[in-house]
Design a protein around this nucleic acid. Structure first.
Lengths: 133, 133
DNA sequence: ATCCAATACTTGACATGTCAAGCATTCGCC
DNA sequence: GGCGAATGCTTGACATGTCAAGTATTGGAT
């Protein structure tokens, strides 16, 4: 219970930080993944694998990002079942602006823990996840 | 990030445990709160205070529980702005059935941690929440 | 008595998460 | 080389979460 509550608190905290930039936490997440993928782009399912979410959610999430011109989609020529997604220049510029405040946000979100505490917390959380295949 | 991921894993795990009973994790949560409130019932906002959620979500959540005949609502005679919510006998019976498997679920969700680890984890999570008013 | 602000919800609109089904492609195997 | 299964999405339907705005009551100050 404490785990779920704490995660919600942190989730909302991050959401409020992102609000002025006009993207939600999930949208930010997708954009960061696409930035990491570089100019090659990433097929839709590859995005959902890197996230906590199932494919249907990603399709609609990317729909909205495409509507905001932050993502471009292209049928993959090699395998026409896949749809490659790319971050647009506008998205990269937005991410750069968000980067400048994100460190600060992390500090305020988890700054109350010492470095040792953070290490410990990460270990415990990893242990829990390891038990759920 | 690890925190959010782990919480999602656990949330889904609990969701799957509850699925055969026909209620979601949030609905179960509300029913437990109402059971704890006893025959006096609880006004809607009092429920949302005990949860991680805002009032609008509660209204609709209770709507669905009422449709399933697991909750009854009544205008409070003393203050007609309030709406008191009660768990129905059917809900109490359902909760009793869920109780019999919940301990087991907890074990499988967090059983990979020693008691010391659990204590430690709870302390760390509490520390994080304490920093978010 | 009355009017204004606060309280307790409720509703509407939109983002997200999930499952089950549907569609287009591609692959493996005969 | 052709057919059925697998793959990669997309859609539809429903539960949830959030904000902003609306409604019904109450309470307090005038």
């Amino acid at each position: 219970m404490g785990l779920l509550r704490t995660a919600d608190v942190v989730r909302r905290f991050i959401g409020r930080m992102l609000e002025p930039f006009g993207v939600t936490a999930q949208q930010y997440n997708v954009l960061r993944i696409l930035r990491g993928a570089g100019p090659e782009g990433l097929p839709t399912l590859a995005i959902s694998e890197r996230m906590i979410e199932e494919a249907p959610g990603i399709t609609r999430l990317v729909d909205r990002l495409e509507a905001k011109e932050l993502v471009r989609r292209k049928r993959c020529p090699g395998d026409r079942r896949q749809v490659l997604c790319f971050a647009t220049p506008a998205a990269l510029e937005l991410l750069a602006r968000i980067d400048t405040v994100m460190d600060d946000t992390d500090d305020r979100a988890l700054g109350m823990l010492s470095d040792d505490d953070k290490t410990q917390l990460i270990r415990l959380l990893d242990t829990v996840r390891a038990g759920h295949p």
